[in-house]
């Protein structure tokens, strides 16, 4: 199902924002790949840079004030960082599709849903006639499980619920059968039932079209439903990445442990408080030179507050940026695993 051919290759990506307070380094050296047909989740709390990374891949960041200051992005053969406007416009919608977080504001309120869909189709299918495009659009609406597609075609977004608008977004994003779909927190603004429906829809679309997906989310449980691989981001860097199984069963970074612990579980002892990770992420105006998680880490060592940890390879495809995995920290690692319960 998952081939070896890479659809997206991101290497050492760095993105800055110029604000009235100074330069904010939102992404500080992020590297990952996505293969054809594969689903990758990028997980992290608000402000960790996952959304910025996703937007950088399609260069949809507002380019003042954002700036890509380093790294390479190769999307299906295109060098995104250095690409010109025309190349980028050709790539968007046909090689890569994107859906965003807030479906309520993601559609043009003064244009019918059908026209917005038709627009996406006609953009990359110059030979297609209007009638054909409309038929195809209606088909797409059915594919995303919107009932009464023909009727819905001429309605305005205000006549759709949040969940349905998100489906329309998905329809627009996959209209020209892109190789990669980037979903930036697609379910955050929706209720739990709708969340499940959307995720289910994404899953079926993915397998039907052999499409790669990058799913951005702050919710680990959302990630677990759908994906093959997971990357955990914190303070603009990837702190751990690997196969879903590796992350969920043998997580190696204290932050990942914290994320997993903070998921409320039905079998938990209800009298105890919910687990949280105390403190907040560092300011990216002057990012720390040491491990960014150190101030909040229960297992912080001296070296952690002095230098950045490199990526340690723990197994095939599983890397973790934490000093605990340095050979000299073997004892500390053992203690940490026992103390946290992630053995």
């Amino acid at each position: 199902m998952v081939s070896d051919k890479k659809v997206l290759n991101v290497e050492d990506l760095r993105v800055c924002f110029d604000t009235y307070r100074g330069e904010v380094q939102a992404v500080r050296g992020v590297s990952f790949d996505v293969c054809e047909g594969e689903a990758l989740a990028i997980v992290g709390e608000s402000g960790c840079g996952k959304s910025v990374t996703a937007h950088a891949v399609t260069r949809l960041l507002p380019e003042p004030p954002a700036r890509i200051t380093g790294g390479r992005i190769n999307l299906d053969g295109t060098d995104v960082v250095n690409a010109g406007k025309k190349t980028l416009q050709g790539m968007r919608g046909s090689a890569v599709g994107m859906i965003f977080q807030d479906p309520m504001t993601s559609l043009n309120p003064t244009m019918t849903v059908g026209k917005q869909l038709r627009e996406a189709l006609l953009r990359h299918n110059p030979g297609m006639g209007l009638k054909d495009a409309e038929l195809k659009a209606a088909e797409l609406l059915s594919e995303v499980r919107i009932p009464n597609a023909a009727q819905r075609f001429s309605q305005y977004p205000s006549q759709f619920s949040g969940g349905m608008r998100q489906r329309v977004m998905i329809a627009i994003a996959i209209a020209c059968k892109p190789k990669l779909l980037i979903a930036d927190e697609p379910t955050t603004a929706l209720d739990v039932t709708t969340q499940a429906q959307i995720l289910d829809l994404l899953k079926s679309i993915q397998s039907a079209n052999r499409m790669a997906i990058i799913l951005i989310t702050h919710d680990l449980s959302v990630a677990s439903c759908l994906v093959d691989r997971v990357a955990v981001m914190y303070a603009g860097q990837i702190v751990e990445k690997g196969l879903a199984k590796q992350i969920f069963q043998t997580a190696a970074h204290p932050y990942t442990w914290g994320l997993m612990d903070s998921l409320p579980r039905p079998d938990q002892d209800k009298s105890r408080d919910l687990n949280t990770i105390a403190g907040s992420p560092p300011s990216l105006l002057s990012p720390p030179a040491e491990c960014s998680f150190a101030p909040r880490c229960h297992f912080c060592m001296q070296v952690c507050s002095q230098r950045q940890p490199p990526g340690f390879e723990l197994g095939p495809g599983h890397t973790c940026s934490c000093w605990l995995h340095h050979p000299m920290a073997a004892d500390m690692l053992k203690q940490a695993k026992e103390a946290s319960g992630h053995v």
Binding site: T58, L60, K85, Q89, G90, M91, R92, G93, S94, G97, M98, F100, D102, T105, S106, L107, N108, P109, T110, M111, Q116, E119, A120, R123, H124, M169, I172, A173
Partner: peptide, 25 residues
């Protein structure tokens, strides 16, 4: 607004985005 971002994500030219989406609203 987000829907302008959506329009761009379809790969529409800046001119189309401005004419069809921005100005109308």
């Amino acid at each position: 607004q987000n829907y302008i971002k959506t329009a761009r994500s379809k790969g529409l030219s800046e001119r189309t985005v401005i004419m069809r989406h921005t100005i109308r609203n």
